[in-house]
Design a binder for these strands. Structure first.
Lengths: 294, 294
DNA sequence: CACCAAGTATCACCGATCGCGATCGTCGCG
DNA sequence: CGCGACGATCGCGATCGGTGATACTTGGTG
């Protein structure tokens, strides 16, 4: 029994598919098949019940899986311990980020991290499905950490550390009937056409929740993945939008109005897993993120 | 990093000697040297500071060692978990025993264990250096369990479970001046020639301690590893002996006398390690041993 | 029922790895 | 200075692990 075999077995158990496990492990499918078979022969037990359509754990496999994870985590901790002692961290840190990261000053944060730990490769990725997609990837161990905006209660296996927040303001064309108002309420803008991020994005969740809580609705006629283009869409009459002030670099032709009587705070958080230990590099970034907090 | 490499590294760290580690691992010395070197290259750190005379852990090695042990223990727990689920335990259980095991009914115990767990190979060995040697072997992980007799406080890393005990009686030739006595004291036999087990044996420790506590001494003129031959030696005038009654199968030509005023209880115990988890097979034998207690 | 797509298992091949045995270099001791 | 013990290196043969091709299986669909 070797760690490599345990790693392949765990990947298959989690993916419930040899081919997906192979992709995750960056080897060919037959290598995974052979390695699991060798492990089964060595242990004298079938670990997986599988055919071309389905892969399920046997009782022996179910008994092995948590302990295999412990062994792999222990080996990782061993590597990290050596790295910490021996002049610096190494490895790759997979970080998920929201598309709009200016709320967080992420470049400054990651730049400082890189200066402190040049041996760590940072692999940042943006989730096409917004923060919910990042949370899914974190839960599926495809990310080590994620910067997300997730209002409401996170899943039990994810811990959120609040980092920053911004209020969403109403952005309207300057010739809009509401443009001369200093503040509006949700009732004033219920039923109107909106520009917003896709479902799954944190800011979209904030706005959807606010309307739902007020028993009101609206039409989102266009979804934009990058809120930095939001003011532009508003300017061209495609609708109105709820955006953070920092996302409106050029406010000519639009007015920014406060929305009274509702909580439109958009919060950015660092999401970390609680169901498994995080590596030394991840811990270092978590510590650095705390340093960056006001 | 693989478990095999961690196992080799841990062995070298504990033995502080590549050659002894190789013997323990049943491979040649160069294989251990190469494996540790490969591990060091992979981790990018020197783990051991060594030359032809000395092997010491580096800081990185010291950081790795406890975590390597955890990983190896986790892998062993994983194997055991599969074995327990999959129709029975398997593997080898290395048991040390005293030369005289009739105090314990060991054949009956091990027979029952074998009936219950036919997949487990029992490898029993007798320590040429008595119970102290068994304790050493247990501490050095060359044994999984040991049946010992060890008066006094055991080492901190060993736990003793008392199983049985017997009182040692004085055995003298039937023409000996003391033969007509019904009971004697240590003072009566101080300074006389004795037959006894070698130093390190539990029964020898009991008798040595008794004389030392009384401020008396004696001459052990012949050491015998098997107390079953003790009475025979006594019969032939080689000395007197302190033996448990069950070891005197044929008492013609000798007398057995009680020794008053001193504790000559010889206790047999099961020694288990406390500094590492024991395997499933060892746990099963520990449980069965408890069942065999009155 | 035939066909298809997706997936797993097997096989041949090849490069890498591992353990063995021999041997060299080092080190502390007498 | 010679010696014994030990670690590191090297050549070699056997084994292992990954690749790519392919055979086989399975469940869904028309």
């Amino acid at each position: 029994m070797e760690l490599r075999q345990l790693e392949y077995f765990v990947a298959v158990a989690e993916e419930q598919n040899f081919t997906r496990a192979a992709a995750r492990l960056h080897v060919v499918q037959s290598a995974v098949s052979a390695a699991v078979k060798t492990l089964e022969r060595e242990l004298g037990a079938s670990l997986l019940d599988r055919n071309s359509k389905r892969v399920r754990l046997t009782d022996a496999g179910a008994a092995l899986l948590p302990r295999a994870r412990i062994a792999l985590d222990a080996a990782r901790a061993a590597r990290d311990a050596v790295a910490e002692v021996h002049g610096g961290l190494r490895g790759t840190l997979r970080i998920g980020t929201m598309t709009s990261t200016r709320l967080l000053h992420l470049p400054a944060l990651l730049g400082e991290f890189h200066r402190r730990h040049p041996g760590v490769l940072l692999h940042t990725s943006v989730a096409p499905h917004g923060s919910q997609g990042l949370i899914d990837a974190l839960a599926e161990r495809r990310l080590d950490l994620a910067f997300v905006s997730l209002p409401g209660t996170p899943p039990a296996e994810i811990h959120l550390t609040e980092l920053a927040s911004s209020v969403l303001d109403l952005v309207v064309p300057d010739d809009h009937p509401l443009a001369t108002s200093e503040a509006v309420t949700l009732a004033d803008i219920a039923g109107l056409d909106f520009i917003d991020s896709p479902v799954g994005y944190g800011n979209r969740a904030v706005t959807d929740r606010a309307f739902a809580a007020a028993g009101l609705s609206r039409r989102v006629t266009i979804e934009i993945p990058d809120i930095a283009t939001g003011a532009e869409h508003v300017r061209h009459g495609l609708g109105i939008a709820l955006l953070p002030r920092f996302a409106v670099a050029d406010d000519h032709g639009v007015r920014l109005l406060s929305v009274a009587g509702v909580d439109l705070t958009w919060t950015a958080s660092l999401a970390t897993p609680v169901d498994r230990p995080v590596g030394a590099a991840a811990r270092a970034l978590i510590s650095l993120t705390a340093e960056f907090l006001p």
